[in-house]
């Protein structure tokens, strides 16, 4: 059947875009806090203040004339990520994993010249990727050296953990793995794989691609049932602390796991998508209601994590 009866979705506690926008984002996310999450430079600043681990900022370029100094900025740097500070939906991110002289390499092995990078930065500055076309800042970040545990589950990209944090309580998680189809990007609607993660254990529950359940990664062939997110005990308090950092009641944080540094907050999203429900094969509503109605307010991140471990385990 193409369409499903709304009552069935309701029964399973699935929330739709309208409900997310009206009942959660509009109600719990104060408009004036948006810049904290919409501008990744500000996010980094706040994260430092709150002792939240983030990927290291190498440099940033704000004006077109600074682009000329790109060669100088990149001296001795072989691996980095260029992204617009106010980019939305993963747009405008350029990942460089290798360098030979003046030639850079993307994860796919595609060659990139200095000129290509300069043009990309120029586009970022003129606001091509930012919300509403505002002029933007290009930031250079250290490339995350991702944990080898994920190697079998990712194709040409860094998998990240998306955690929905409601009023400071981590309530649902998924791992997003890029595929050949998603062109190395971790966006589910572009063909990346979403893996539901058990809040209690950090083990995989369920994997979907393009809305369909799958057993194995389409490119690497590894079975998702074996997947265990490392540093899980670190990830939970880190995401819970994003509540204090941003002040937002309903947010999604993206976490990457560095081989050496452990869990890092990549970015925080004030309008997290709903695909996480598909990846977990479960609706968000029950957990949201649980927090809204029963969870104790104004507690520390550690206590909230304890509560989440107790109440949001999937068994």
């Amino acid at each position: 059947m193409l369409f499903v009866k709304p009552s069935l979705l309701k029964e399973r506690g699935i929330i739709g875009m309208n409900r997310r926008n009206v009942d959660y984002i509009a109600r719990y996310n104060d408009r004036k806090l948006y810049p904290i999450v919409d501008n990744k430079l500000i996010t980094k600043e706040y994260a430092k203040k709150h002792n939240i681990a983030v990927p290291e900022l190498i440099n940033s370029i704000q004006y077109q004339f600074e682009i000329k100094q790109l060669e100088k900025i990149l001296t001795g740097i072989d691996k980095f990520v260029v992204k617009p500070a106010q980019g939305a939906g993963g747009k405008g991110i350029l990942v460089i994993t290798d360098r030979k002289g003046d030639i850079f390499y993307k994860p796919s092995g595609k060659e990139v010249t200095f000129d290509d990078i300069k043009r990309h930065i120029s586009n970022i500055l003129s606001g091509l990727h930012s919300l509403g076309g505002k002029t933007d800042v290009a930031m250079f970040e250290k490339l995350v050296d991702f944990d080898p545990v994920f190697e079998p589950y990712s194709y040409e990209g860094v998998p990240d953990v998306r955690m929905i944090v409601f009023q400071g309580y981590p309530i649902m998680a998924m791992l997003r793995c890029s595929t050949h189809e998603s062109d190395g990007k971790a966006n589910l609607h572009q063909g990346a794989v979403g893996v539901g993660i058990d809040i209690k254990t950090g083990r995989s529950l369920f994997a979907v691609q393009d809305g369909r359940m799958i057993e194995k990664h389409p490119d690497t062939g590894s079975a998702f049932s074996e997947l265990q997110v490392p540093h899980w005990e670190e990830i939970l308090p880190l995401s819970a602390a994003c509540y204090e950092m941003t002040g937002m009641g309903y947010l999604g944080c993206d976490i990457v796991i560095d081989k050496n540094l452990g869990a890092l907050i990549l970015e925080v999203n004030a309008r997290p998508g709903l695909a996480i429900q598909i990846a977990n094969d479960e609706g968000l509503l029950k957990r949201l209601k649980m927090v809204e109605e029963h969870a104790p307010k104004s507690t520390s991140p550690e206590e909230r994590v304890k509560y989440s471990l107790e109440h949001f385990a999937t068994d």
Partner: peptide
């Protein structure tokens, strides 16, 4: 705050639980 028509398609597999 109800479902959009396209969401009834998007979440169609969630109704029964895969």
């Amino acid at each position: 705050n109800g479902y959009r028509l396209t969401e009834l398609y998007r979440f169609r597999d969630l109704a029964k639980g895969q």
